[in-house]
Structure formats: structure tokens, C-alpha cells
Design a protein around this nucleic acid. Structure first.
Lengths: 139, 139
DNA sequence: TTTAATTCGGACTATATACTCCGATTATGA
DNA sequence: TCATAATCGGAGTATATAGTCCGAATTAAA
């Protein structure tokens, strides 16, 4: 199998987008997120906890607790989440896996790959979580 | 960690490119490939065996045996190797990992991601192994 | 004919990631 | 004050991928 992002990162992105969608509904429980996204409750819970540590989302324990966004979704890009969970190796490392590949000793596809990698990075950077929030009041 | 291709696929690409470079030198042993590419002999050996099964390269046992290209490197694209080892999931599956994502119910980045994915596919498709072979006689 | 060099194939181990379980903690509200 | 509902945190299991080991088969050349 081949992946662009780790499973954990995919879940984080799905979770953040879900929270943005429900941002005017207060705390959203891991249970609800898991059910709606059809993934494991314990795993999405753990994944969201790492986003809490990073200050991107908030959590509240106890009855009617759950998760919610902690920042202005306008200032939250998809790239931010990817970097927190997976780091930037996918944007840096050689596509053929050659450890020596770089500007000085490029691999055969180094030049061709650069612009594509840059485009995907920019896409994630320019896509904010806010773009997917519902208009206030429409919920 | 995040990968675009599996380690096995990276090794396969490195191996094929190496064989193309040495294509006028007869059989190349796994030992030599492993040493020059600085990877495990047993692992590159196993990896190349799957390419042999697929008819892209040849192998010969015994003394002075080894591996060599089995096809015209002009008709051998990097995409061919990727598809053999990793399949086409990276070009098909949703970047956010949403199983329902598709033309009918696109994920938030579906439209933006399409062209980037297509560009990377085309890049691999249009890059042949032959582009990296030395000019005849120059070896 | 023997020796050395090689792939082949199967079984094995190592490691990272994915995922689960459960008890402790925290908070709400009846 | 008590029951209930939630996260937190640590430890565990499952699975896939990565990588190793070794003996058998094969071949070339001494």
C-alpha cells in the first residue's frame, strides 16, 4: 500500500474539518465524531489529543465535554495539521528515496518532482479550515 | 513518517535505474547493486525478483549471473515499476482518506487535488528508464 | 569434475503504525 | 451528593512492511 499521509493524519484532517462544520454546536464528543466519520472512537480520540497538545483544538472532560476548535479557523491551514502529525518529510525527502538527493547531486527526477511537490504544499497551505465552515446561522 | 512510495518501490526504482545505467555490462549481481546503492543485498534481491516475475527485468543464476533489463528501456516508464510494486492506490484514493470521496460526493480538497495527482502520474508515465541510460559506447 | 558465485524460495525476526482496553480523572446536572 | 458522561494516559495487541538468514538450485570456469 502507498500513502501520502499516515492514517492518523488523515483522521486528524477529517476530524478538524468535522469540528469546523460543527463549530457553533459547542463541544463535540469523540463518540459523535467517530460515529459520523465511521472510524474508531478510541483512535480518533487519541489523535485529537495530540492536536489539543499543540493548541489547535480544545478539549473538555466530563459530562457534555468533548472537542472544539481553539483558534480562528481562518488562520488554520490543512498544512498546519499535516505538519503536526506527519512532519514535513513528504515535502522534503527524495521521491526515489535516495538519501543523497538534493540540489548538488539531484536524482533523475529531482527537477521534475520539485514543482509538483511545491504545488501540493501550496495547496494545503492555502486551504484553510474556515473554507469549510457553514455560514453563521445556517446551522 | 509519511511516504509516497513504499520502501520496496523506492528500491525497485533505484535498482531499475541502476541497471539501465549499466545495461551494456551484462549481468549485474545483487551484491554489486546493493553495495553501490548502499542497501541490503537480500532485500534488493527479493525486490528485483518481483520485477523478474513481471518480465521487466531478467535474472540468471550461477557464476557471473545477475540481473539485467528484459525490455527496451524506451518502453519502460517509472510508472510501470510503481504500478507493479505499489499498485495505483496513490493515484486513486482520497487524499483525506475518505472512502466515499469521488466525483459524486467530493471531499473538501477533491477538486484541488485532482490536477496535482494527475501531474505526478503523468510525470512518472512520461519519464522512461531510457532517459537515464548512457550513450552507447560512452561506457 | 570440482569449486566458487550467484539467484531462488521459504521461513524467520524487527520495527513502525494502527488500533484497543481500561482505569483514573474531571465535570455536569438531577 | 451521586450517577453519568466524557477526556486522559498508559499499557497492551494486531497487522503490515521492512529486513535477515540459510539452504537448495543453477551455472561458469578452473
Amino acid at each position: 500500500m502507498t500513502v501520502l499521509f499516515s492514517r492518523k493524519c488523515e483522521y486528524a484532517l477529517q476530524g478538524i474539518l468535522y469540528l469546523a462544520e460543527k463549530q457553533y454546536e459547542g463541544n463535540i464528543s469523540a463518540e459523535q465524531i467517530a460515529t459520523d466519520l465511521n472510524i474508531s472512537r478510541d483512535f480518533i480520540s487519541k489523535t485529537l489529543q495530540s492536536l489539543v497538545k499543540d493548541g489547535i483544538i480544545q478539549s473538555h472532560r466530563g459530562k457534555s465535554g468533548g472537542f472544539s476548535l481553539a483558534k480562528d479557523p481562518d488562520s488554520m491551514s490543512l498544512l498546519d495539521i499535516v505538519l503536526i502529525i506527519d512532519g514535513n518529510s513528504v515535502f522534503e525527502s527524495c521521491v526515489l528515496g535516495l538519501p543523497t538527493c538534493g540540489a548538488e547531486s539531484p536524482c533523475p527526477v529531482h527537477e521534475k518532482w520539485g514543482p509538483i511537490r511545491e504545488a501540493s504544499r501550496k495547496m494545503l497551505e492555502n486551504t484553510t479550515v474556515a473554507q469549510f465552515q457553514p455560514v453563521t446561522g445556517s446551522v
